[in-house]
Design a protein around this nucleic acid. Sequence first.
DNA 1: ATTTTTCATTTACATTTGTAATCAATTCAA
DNA 2: TTGAATTGATTACAAATGTAAATGAAAAAT
Lengths: 126, 126
Amino acid sequence: MDNTPRISDAEWQVIKVIWQRPGISAQEIIEELEHSSSWSPATIKTLLNRLLKKKALRFEKEGKAYCYHALVSEEECRQSESDSFLSRVFDGALSPMLAHFIRSRPLSEEELNELESLVRQKKGKP
Amino acid sequence: MDNTPRISDAEWQVIKVIWQRPGISAQEIIEELEHSSSWSPATIKTLLNRLLKKKALRFEKEGKAYCYHALVSEEECRQSESDSFLSRVFDGALSPMLAHFIRSRPLSEEELNELESLVRQKKGKP
DNA sequence: ATTTTTCATTTACATTTGTAATCAATTCAA
DNA sequence: TTGAATTGATTACAAATGTAAATGAAAAAT
């Protein structure tokens, strides 16, 4: 049951803010996004409504303000985006994809250590 | 200079076939895709034309047939898709993204070894 | 209570995408 | 050489997306 809704690029920006602060009000969302984006408040409202329509969000009326909560988890959406990215761009082949990223970008010593231990850990369990 | 064109999901399917066999004819592309997809030939032609318009492909007339070549490399497109995926879904944070994939999917012993050695290798050079 | 302000809901509109049918030119067969 | 068959180019159209303005109802101010 893949009922995770398809979330567009712009919508991701918005729902991310809500994941970070569940129950955040529309006003606060707009303020937050006025920094990280160049959208007009109207645009942000449209995106909120689309996410509502897709059942990715719900809202609660807290007194005068509308407060938003996610109905899909970030983990869930990441999973589904990751699936689609992996199959589209790397034909579903995980290990070439990982290799691509490891090769193509700088990683700090710590991150490399972390990765190494993740891989080791994974090796333990079949 | 980010002149890599934006390639849609459906277009990826098509250009992948061309990367695999540079110089492939339209007819062959259609045959190839009739297996892996459920598109009508007309649809595939549309996608070819869109890719032409985006300067992602060019064609050569070999006698009667049109033969297609990519103008953007697979590596290039992977890079650009990867950038956009990473920043949209993981806020650009590489290492959490890698962790997500390593955790969430099965990897064979060999793949794990390969990854380990990639990481080691990377550790060598600062 | 009436005006003003606020803010959620509707409507707008151009572009991209998925999906395909039709048109037009070139080639092949009769 | 003329009609039939291929097949690339053009046109079609609905849904999704990016971007935002107009509308309408509720709250606040006067």
